[in-house]
Design a protein around this nucleic acid. Structure first.
Lengths: 230, 230
DNA sequence: GATACATATTTCATTGAATGAAATTTAGAG
DNA sequence: CTCTAAATTTCATTCAATGAAATATGTATC
């Protein structure tokens, strides 16, 4: 298992690059694997890992493998406290999912990933996991990813279309049986914040229904001083 | 405002050192302040900050200041998913706080800090905040901090006593009107996990009550395969 | 309990990335 | 528009980072 990408140059970049190797699918990784996944020499990786463990961003498990550590909770809780977006979006999300009877979630772009900042607590389909903090590569699609790309300056005809339309509908793009509609969310001053999505079983959701959701969302987020266009 | 401590040497250490400057009290910091707090040259700090922003561990606000970014949520959610301690302790915590009618929380040591991994949802006193992810320096006391020091190999008569006693009671140590009892939590194989604390208004909680809580906790955590001694 | 294999850790001479003082630019206040 | 403070860029010097090789540790296998 060799690395898919070349490792970055700087030491701090390399440390964070190591952290980026962890995911919900790869929660625990031994040195060997971290070295090969990251493309770093194992001695180099080992030195960086020591530092990350010292600071609590990773922990070294009894079996010698590494996994994310408690310091991440610390920063996450500060992040949550500063992000007024999260606090403001939670109430609208609850009302939207109530009204449409489907899963509602909010995503932001971070680098080449999309991260879930909030989701409703009501509709948990075991076939379709969305966790707060969960992230997937933008290239792995989904409505949220397409929308985030379109509204964060990505060029291309497909993205032009999305921007013109003001929403993006996907059917089975990321998860075979599901359909989603994603909408851009803007601060009152016009700043782009992220993507709000409504997802449910494809068989329950013809395109017309998904398009109809847009108006519901527009109405609900307005109460929090947010809008779907600049 | 000059730095209290000398900055570490390695680049990765320095990057994480910068991250450690943020806290619930200092959620947003401009370059100037980060440089002086960390003791790093502002050019050096700026370069490191760029990297941290690129990876989403910090965000640069409109006013030029920095604060923790969404990538921390990503790692925090992986951490939460790997930490079976958190999942196992949540149910006992809920039952304990129910039985004793006070705030119950669980803390681990990370470096020179104590981080809250879990707390009950029942007793939220606005004068006594404990947030999941919240952290304070071990030196700033509190029962949890004293207990974590005693059980993570710290030397000293005070810590010997705590280890001998098997719990630590504080009255107004960290927060004037409150009293707490902290107990060590062990994995079934004897591994020390962290400190479980029960906190409430000092006037409601004579020492005898606090000591009585120990047996309740012992009984409740046993159900999750945890114990209060090796 | 000895042997072999795989993974983790340490070492150290070489190299190139990190450094920070100074110069320059940008932004806000008056 | 001018002044001041903060942010950013530059670049010659230096010191921390590097990684190949040697060594150690752990764990299956016979």
């Amino acid at each position: 298992m060799t690395s898919s990408k070349r490792p970055p140059a700087g030491v701090l970049d390399r440390g964070l690059w190591l952290l980026s190797q962890f995911s919900m699918e790869r929660k625990k990784l031994p040195l060997k694997e971290l070295a090969s996944l990251s493309g770093l020499d194992k001695a180099t990786a080992l030195r960086l890992l020591k530092v990350l463990v010292d600071w609590g961003y990773l922990v070294k498990n009894a079996d010698g493998s590494y996994s994310p550590g408690p310091s991440n909770l610390r920063l996450a809780s500060i992040y949550r406290a500063t992000s007024n977006t999260i606090t403001r979006i939670e109430a609208p999300i609850a009302r939207i999912s109530e009204r449409v009877g489907q899963t509602t979630a909010f995503f932001v772009r971070s680098g080449e990933e999309r991260i879930c900042l909030a989701r409703d607590h009501a509709y948990q389909d075991f076939r379709y996991f969305i966790e707060v903090g969960g992230s997937v590569s933008l290239s792995e699609g989904g409505a949220a990813a397409q929308l985030l790309m379109a509204y964060s300056g990505e060029a291309g005809e497909r993205h032009d279309e999305t921007r013109g339309r003001g929403y993006y509908i996907s059917r089975g793009e990321r998860n075979r049986h599901f359909a989603s509609v994603a909408m851009p969310l803007f601060e009152s001053d016009g700043q782009f914040l992220g993507a709000l999505t409504i997802t449910g079983l494809a068989v329950d959701l013809p395109d017309d229904d998904l398009i109809g959701f847009v108006d519901i969302v527009r109405a609900e987020v307005a109460g929090a001083g947010l809008s779907l266009s600049r």
